[in-house]
C-alpha cells in the first residue's frame, strides 16, 4: 500500500520534527531563562544545570509518549532509584543518553570531546560537569580535580552513566569495553550497576532522521547486574571487572 506508506512517512517526519523542535528550542529557551540565571544564582552550578536538563528531557519523553502511542516505556523502580553509583549501559541509539538524563536529576556522563569545542553547547557541557571522552583533554591537576568533583557528585547521591563501547552498535552486537569508567568507579569506590537498554533503536534507528512511530514497541531498561568489587583486594584488576561486566551483557543479550 504505497499511499499508507507515504502517509506513515509524512506522519513520522512531522512527529519527529515536532519533538526535535521542542528539544532544540527548549534548549534555547532554557539557556536564556534558566541556565544563565542558574549560573548567577546557584551555589552548585553543575547540579542546577543537570537538574534543568533532566526536567527538559523528562518533558521531551512525556511528549514522545503522547505523540507516539505505540511506543511504551518499561523502566522498573530499581533502575529509577539508583543513586551514588556508576551505571554502565549498552548503546544502541542516540536516544539512550537523553533517556538516562530524563531519569536521573543528578547525573554525569562522558561526552565526545569534540562537542566541548562547539560554541555555547561546549560551554553548557563544561558547566554541567560532563567529562570529555579523550582524557588528554584534561591532563594533570585538572584530571585529579575532575575526579574529585565526580567523587563528591556521587557522595551527594549523583550517578555517572557511561556507554563503555564508546559508540552505538549498528548490529546489536556488543563492542569491546573501554576500561575508563571502571577506573572512575575504582577511584570513587562506587558500585557499578549494569543496565541493558532495549528497543530505543526501534524508535530511532541509527542512520535515519525520523522516528519510526508505526511498530508496537516497548523500550526497556533492565538492571541485569551490580558489581561491587573489593577495590582494596590484592587480586583486584580493572581489566577483569570490565571483562565481567561485558560478560554479563553478552549473556543477557544472548537470552533476550
Amino acid at each position: 500500500m504505497p499511499l499508507i506508506k507515504i502517509i506513515s512517512k509524512v506522519y513520522n517526519f512531522l512527529i519527529t520534527s515536532l519533538l526535535w523542535a521542542y528539544f532544540l528550542f527548549g534548549y534555547l529557551f532554557l539557556l536564556l531563562f534558566l541556565f544563565l540565571p542558574a549560573i548567577v544564582i546557584s551555589k552548585n552550578v553543575s547540579a542546577a544545570l543537570q537538574n534543568i536538563n533532566h526536567v527538559h528531557l523528562r518533558v521531551f519523553f512525556a511528549l514522545t509518549r503522547i505523540f507516539i502511542r505505540r511506543t511504551k516505556f518499561e523502566i522498573p523502580d530499581e533502575v529509577r532509584q539508583i543513586r551514588s553509583a556508576v551505571i554502565v549501559c549498552n548503546h544502541i541509539s542516540y536516544l539512550d543518553p537523553i533517556l538516562l538524563v530524563s531519569l536521573f536529576p543528578r547525573h554525569l556522563t562522558i561526552v565526545k570531546n569534540t562537542f566541548f569545542k562547539v560554541p555555547i553547547f561546549g560551554w553548557f557541557l563544561k558547566n554541567t560537569g560532563y567529562i570529555p571522552s579523550a582524557p588528554n583533554e584534561m591532563m594533570g591537576a585538572a584530571m585529579i580535580n575532575n575526579l574529585e568533583a565526580i567523587k563528591k557528585h556521587m557522595a551527594d547521591g549523583g550517578i555517572v552513566f557511561v556507554f563503555p563501547e564508546g559508540t552505538r552498535s549498528r548490529d546489536g552486537k556488543l563492542a569491546a569495553f573501554n576500561k575508563g569508567v571502571f577506573s572512575i568507579a575504582r577511584y570513587c569506590k562506587s558500585p557499578i550497576h549494569l543496565i541493558l537498554i532495549k528497543n530505543t533503536n526501534m524508535l530511532f534507528r541509527p542512520g535515519t532522521f525520523s522516528f519510526d512511530t508505526r511498530p508496537f514497541n516497548t523500550i526497556k531498561l533492565n538492571l541485569i547486574g551490580t558489581l561491587e568489587p573489593d577495590f582494596k583486594s590484592y587480586n583486584f584488576s580493572v581489566s577483569s571487572v570490565a571483562q565481567n561486566a561485558r560478560a554479563v551483557f553478552e549473556k543477557n543479550l544472548l537470552h533476550s
Binding site: A134, P135, N136, M138, M139, G140, M143, L147, K179, G180, S183, I184, R186, Y187, F231, K232, Y234, F236, V238
Partner: peptide, 15 residues
C-alpha cells in the same frame, strides 16, 4: 598511556 591510565596507576601505587 592516557590520564585515565595514570589514575589507574595511582590507585595501584596506593595499593
Amino acid at each position: 598511556f592516557d590520564s585515565i591510565d595514570a589514575i589507574e596507576l595511582l590507585l595501584e601505587i596506593e595499593r
